[in-house]
Amino acid sequence: MTEGLEAILTDPAGAVIGLDFDGTLAPIVSDPEAARIHPAGPGVLARLGDLVGSLVVITGRPAATAVEYGSLDKVPGLVVLGHYGLERWEAGVLATPPVHPGLGRVRAELPGLIAPFEGVRIEDKGRAVAVHTRRAPQPQAALDALRAPVTMLAAETGLAVEPGKFVLELRPPGTDKGTTLTAFLRERSARAVLFAGDDLGDVAAFEVVRSCGLPGVTVFSGSPELTVEADIVVDGPAGVIDLLDSIATTLESR
Rank of each mutant, 00 (worst) to 15 (best):
L48W: 02
A108L: 04
L185I: 05
L55H: 10
L181W: 03
P101W: 07
T179H: 02
I58A: 01
E162R: 08
D11W: 05
R210M: 01
D50M: 13
G41Q: 05
V193G: 09
A205V: 03
A13Y: 11
G178E: 12
L19D: 07
S223Y: 13
T179C: 02
G18H: 02
A95V: 15
E229A: 14
G92Q: 09
T227P: 04
G77R: 05
R191S: 15
G104H: 11
L243Q: 08
L170P: 02
A145P: 10
A196G: 07
V93N: 08
S246F: 01
A183R: 15
A63H: 05
G70E: 13
T249V: 11
V209H: 03
G14P: 03
C212E: 08
C212V: 12
H38V: 09
L94Y: 09
Y84D: 11
D245Q: 15
F220N: 03
L72Y: 11
L51K: 10
L110P: 11
A115V: 00
V29M: 07
G201S: 02
P215Y: 08
I37Q: 00
Q140F: 02
D20V: 01
V217M: 12
D245N: 13
V120T: 05
V44D: 10
E187C: 08
E229T: 11
T65C: 06
A230F: 09
Q140V: 04
T179Q: 07
V80H: 07
E68K: 15
D199W: 07
A145T: 09
D144S: 12
R121A: 14
Q138D: 15
G23F: 10
F117G: 02
I8L: 14
E68V: 14
L113S: 10
V129W: 05
V80Y: 05
E162P: 01
M1L: 12
S253H: 15
M1A: 13
E162T: 14
P27H: 14
T96K: 06
R188W: 09
H132F: 08
S221H: 03
P111Q: 08
D11R: 15
F117A: 00
T24Y: 10
A7P: 11
R105G: 09
V217Y: 06
V208H: 08
S211I: 04
E90C: 11
R47H: 01
G102T: 10
P12G: 13
P215C: 14
L5W: 01
A142V: 01
T96E: 14
G119V: 00
S30F: 08
E87R: 09
G92R: 13
S223Q: 14
V67L: 08
T151N: 03
P42F: 11
T175E: 13
P97H: 07
D22M: 01
P172F: 07
V167R: 00
G158W: 01
E109Q: 03
L81I: 00
P12Y: 09
L110H: 08
I28Y: 10
T175W: 13
V131M: 03
I58F: 01
A130H: 01
R36P: 00
T182A: 14
L181M: 03
W89V: 05
A95L: 10
V79S: 13
E162S: 12
E68G: 10
C212H: 06
D20L: 10
K125C: 06
A128H: 00
D144V: 02
V129L: 13
G23L: 08
D73H: 11
P39C: 04
P137Q: 05
H38I: 04
R88N: 04
R127Q: 09
T151W: 09
A192L: 00
